[in-house]
Design a protein around this nucleic acid. Structure first.
Lengths: 156, 156
DNA sequence: CGTGAAATCGATTCCAC
DNA sequence: GTGGAATCGATTTCACG
């Protein structure tokens, strides 16, 4: 899909529509229409515009990992050997389903990853057997999330 | 909504349904029904079960912050004074819309936050004027995300 | 568990205004 | 922007297997 990164005009009505759908992607359009006093057709027109602008990147069902027994979230700072090409390490990380996010970062590490595990033992096995064994990974630093207090998107 | 954290049975059909909807929350149920060879009513029954189990935590439209000019993501490790009650700091962080995630973590910091900014200047202002000025924050360490390579949910 | 049908409502597009 | 028409999907309910 083409993305126009420039000249996006978002008015207050667009924001109201988006705020509803960012909370619940399946909220009925006609219900939103009634709440903000606009026709359903107008909402559809605006949503098409917002999709074409690239502002709406899609929609997702959100899964609660705790219900599947995944109760341990952690951030892993990864040191890579200078010789190692970072993309190869990322390719290996992508194969590990527990890795939810992976960023090239400034600062101490080459890569910062966010991972989800069932428990501390699972986390330890992941670190020792899967992440540490990636070629080029020299060292890792682990920060376990004891509790996530904020989880949201950009405010519009 | 009540959440049953135990005795959740997810079979292969549930997983197929969820995989579709985790990619696109507005994918037509009947389209999913046709693809996996089951009736629409059966999908609805399973979705009700999955919602009641708490596994489905909701659905969201995903907004692309870049289109709004937010191009700089960063992780901030926050050191808090021992005397400071952490919840008060979180309360202040919650008021800062640029803060997308906030975790109590093991390790060096008290808190690890993920934030989104328009640019480095915006990030600097946020750090100097909003985060550093929170009572109890003694020091911060900033890791700018140069590129996010992986962004996904738990695999089911 | 599953189905198919009915009923009601929403989604989506199109069009005339 | 609007409303109406048309077509399709969403959702629930139900009788049935």
């Amino acid at each position: 899909m083409k993305v126009n990164d420039d000249k996006i005009e978002i008015d207050g009505i667009d924001k109201e529509i988006l705020r509803f759908l960012m909370e619940d992607a399946r909220k009925p359009i006609l219900e939103i229409a009634r709440k903000i006093g606009i026709s359903g057709a107008a909402i559809h027109q605006r949503l098409r515009k917002l999709e074409q602008s690239g502002l709406i990147a899609g929609s997702k069902f959100i899964i609660n990992p705790k219900v599947l027994g995944y109760t341990t979230m952690a951030f892993i700072g990864i040191y890579l050997d200078k010789a190692m090409r970072n993309p190869e390490a990322v390719k290996q990380l992508r194969k590990i389903p527990e890795v939810l996010e992976c960023h090239y970062t400034t600062g101490n590490w080459s890569i910062l990853a966010k991972i989800i595990c069932k428990d501390n033992e699972h986390l330890m096995n992941l670190l020792n057997h899967k992440i540490q064994s990636i070629e080029g990974v020299s060292r890792t630093e682990t920060f376990i999330s004891l509790a996530q207090q904020i989880d949201r998107q950009i405010s519009i």
